[in-house]
Simulated scan of single mutants.
Amino acid sequence: MRIIWEWLRRWQLSLFEKVILTNSLLLLAEAVTALWVTSHALEAHHFLIDTTFLVAATLLSIAINAFLLRASFRPLFRLLGVIRQISAGKTEARAESAPADSSEVGQLAAAFNTMLDRLEELRRQQSALILQAREEELRRVSRELHDESSQNLTAVLVYCEILLRTVESLPAESMTSETRRQLIASCQQLSELAQQTLDAVRQLSQRLRPPVLDDLGLVAALRWLVEDCHRRFCLPVELTIEEQALWQRLPPPYETTLFRIAQEALTNVARHARASRAQLSLQLASSAIHLSIRDNGLGYDPGQPSNGLGLVSMRERAALLGGRLSIDARPGQGTHVEAILPLPVS
Rank of each mutant, 00 (worst) to 15 (best):
C160F: 04
L190C: 10
T335K: 03
D199V: 01
A93E: 01
A133E: 14
L54D: 15
D295R: 00
Q283Y: 08
R124P: 00
Q304A: 10
G299W: 04
W247R: 15
D328G: 04
A63Y: 15
E264F: 04
D117G: 09
A270L: 03
A44P: 05
R232M: 08
R315I: 03
V105N: 05
R294I: 01
L193R: 06
V219D: 08
E338D: 11
G332E: 00
S346M: 12
D215F: 10
L235F: 11
A270V: 01
N152H: 13
P75M: 11
N113S: 13
A318F: 02
L291N: 00
I162G: 11
V201M: 08
R202L: 09
V226T: 03
L27G: 14
R143I: 12
P251N: 14
R294E: 08
I3F: 07
E338Q: 14
R134V: 02
A44F: 14
S287Y: 10
L79A: 00
A111P: 00
V237M: 02
N307P: 11
P75A: 09
T51C: 13
A245N: 06
I4Y: 10
L343Y: 13
V312E: 10
F112P: 00
L170I: 08
L284I: 08
A44N: 11
R202H: 00
R143N: 05
L122V: 14
E242G: 02
L235A: 04
T91L: 14
T267D: 08
G89I: 08
E338G: 05
R10N: 08
G308M: 03
I340H: 12
I130Y: 02
I241K: 02
R74Q: 13
W36M: 12
R274T: 15
E192L: 06
R70F: 12
R143V: 14
T267A: 13
E17K: 15
L69F: 01
Q248L: 14
I261L: 03
D301T: 07
S281P: 01
G303W: 06
T22Y: 09
R74M: 11
R84T: 11
P252Y: 03
Y159A: 06
N268M: 04
T257N: 06
F233S: 04
E242A: 12
P210D: 01
S205A: 08
R78F: 05
R94E: 04
H146K: 08
R330D: 07
L298V: 12
Q279D: 07
V156K: 02
R143W: 10
V269I: 04
S14N: 00
A220T: 10
R134M: 09
W7L: 09
A285Q: 15
E136M: 11
L79G: 02
Q132I: 11
R118E: 07
I130N: 14
E104H: 05
W36I: 11
E316K: 15
T38D: 11
G297T: 07
A63M: 03
A93Q: 03
R139M: 12
C187V: 10
